[in-house]
Amino acid sequence: MAAVRHGAFRPLRVTEVERLTDDAVAVTFAVPPELRETFRYAPGQHIALRRRADGAEIRRTYSICAPVTDPDGPASLRVGVRLVEGGEFSTYAHKELSVGDVVEVMSPAGRFILEPKPGRYAAVVGGSGITPVLSIVSTLLAQQPEARFCLIRGDRTVSSTMFLEEVADLKDRYPDRFQLVQALSREEQQAGLPAGRLDEERLTELLPALLPVDAVDGWFLCGPYGLVQGAERALTGLGVRRDRIHQEIFHVDDSSAPLPVPAAAPAHSALTATLDGRSGKWPVRDGESLLETVLRNRADAPYACKGGVCGTCRAFLVTGEVRMDRNFALEPEELAAGYVLACQSHPVDEQVELDFDR
């Protein structure tokens, strides 16, 4: 069997566009038998979608929200798409995309995953951050009868809550092993938590009242930058080890995120890069990222957001030193192991080598 190429897209046909809320849809793609191995995914992974409009290429990543059920690979892929103001792909998905249309899809990627195993797990999610966690929890509970999961989710209102029925079904199916806590920021509930955001202060007080924090084997944080950072600080303050905290950021507000640090690049630098078993060496132009250098010479380089969020362009730094503008995708352990985001990396040394295959 041929290895899956990193940046390759394949056309998949849309079989369903389901309205979840006023501003969210679930899109399902059919995976033909010959591509089921290519699109095999772990619970929590995402796919990149591509379309061309007005001569420009648009790429966006969306998490797979369906459980892993077939050991031979999926017959379909389902993702949740929330409408973003000014978002070119999300607007297309909401207003134009229909059953029978064909969309270019990259093979699944991402390390925000939980391979099913016994234990106690928990997640703090906000808004569309539920999508990868829905795949994680539904797969875990179905495959591991000894596993338990606590989901703390924050949304604006009940009507804006994605996958409301799917989460309720999990609660009905696994009443003794699945704990659900819903917080609404703009609407009071008849029962449950009072209205308010899940910020660091609130989570610091709430989490120990819900479950034994130090007995949780893995915490999964997903959603906007502010929520994920607040949840991480709360857990760290409660004594949770960093290696038990996993996070994925869906949206970064530039007003709240750290500003990029300008990279001090040498006058002349060259990049050697290995991708899908082939290597090349090219000069790095002034101001461009290492991903841009590769793309000038290899159109199949893997990327999606180019904002340091999705992690699709992760590569191993073989030699040399680079400076990253931003990083919202790599865990501290990955950084320590030598991985960088090519879309955010600029050379510090005159000779730099990246390996996309590791």
Rank of each mutant, 00 (worst) to 15 (best):
218 G>Q: 06
212 P>E: 11
174 Y>L: 07
214 D>E: 14
264 A>V: 14
222 C>Y: 09
253 D>N: 15
182 Q>W: 00
247 Q>K: 15
191 A>L: 01
239 G>R: 05
206 L>E: 00
270 A>E: 13
261 V>N: 06
195 A>R: 13
205 E>P: 00
197 R>M: 08
186 R>E: 09
208 P>R: 08
210 L>K: 01
171 K>E: 08
175 P>Q: 13
174 Y>R: 13
252 V>T: 04
239 G>L: 11
176 D>Q: 15
171 K>P: 00
227 L>H: 01
193 L>E: 08
222 C>G: 12
227 L>V: 05
189 Q>K: 11
230 G>M: 13
261 V>Q: 15
181 V>G: 04
241 R>Q: 10
181 V>S: 00
239 G>M: 15
187 E>D: 08
214 D>K: 15
233 R>C: 03
240 V>T: 04
197 R>W: 02
230 G>N: 12
230 G>H: 01
245 I>H: 03
215 A>M: 05
238 L>K: 10
267 A>K: 08
264 A>E: 07
203 L>T: 08
246 H>P: 10
235 L>N: 08
201 E>C: 00
250 F>G: 12
186 R>I: 09
211 L>N: 03
194 P>H: 04
177 R>H: 02
197 R>K: 14
241 R>T: 03
261 V>Y: 08
250 F>K: 01
204 T>L: 05
254 D>N: 14
235 L>Y: 12
227 L>A: 00
